[in-house]
């Protein structure tokens, strides 16, 4: 069978879309509404810090963020290429997926800092 990169990118895009749809509304509800408005008692800083410091949480969060970044990049790639008619396939792809690499590196830095 021929090796093509597109199926792997599409899997990450698809997984990222599903995970974003499942988790982003929950996180947004908790951290943007429920905790600040006092609907639910927020966890203490130490408690959250302990959760994020766990290597398993690190792996889950890192994986989650990277596939969601791929999802966003993949959509943006088609927005630029088809929507805005920027017909430079390689340049658009490099910019979009390059941004994923930068975002993944930033995630590593932030999450790595939290697990110290």
């Amino acid at each position: 069978m021929k090796f093509r990169i597109e199926p792997f990118v599409w899997l990450a895009f698809s997984g990222g879309g599903v995970l974003a749809a499942l988790f982003m509304p929950v996180l947004a509800f908790l951290f943007a509404l429920a905790f600040p408005l006092g609907w639910i008692d927020p966890p203490s800083h130490d408690h959250l810090d302990a959760i994020v410091s766990n290597p398993l949480t690190f792996l889950v969060l890192f994986g989650l963020f990277v596939v969601m970044l791929v999802h966003a990049a993949h959509r943006f790639r088609y927005t630029l290429y088809d929507g805005l008619q920027i017909k430079h396939r390689v340049l658009v792809g490099t910019l979009c997926y390059g941004a994923v690499l930068v975002g993944a590196f930033a995630c590593l830095q932030f999450l790595g800092g939290a697990t110290q």
């Binding site: 069978m1 093509r4 792997f8 698809s14």
Partner: peptide, 20 residues
Amino acid sequence: YKLKAAQESVKAFLLPRAFR
């Protein structure tokens, strides 16, 4: 078809030829 192609690609990438 996209899902099928992705599954086959992952199998081809990860599994030895005899198990695909």
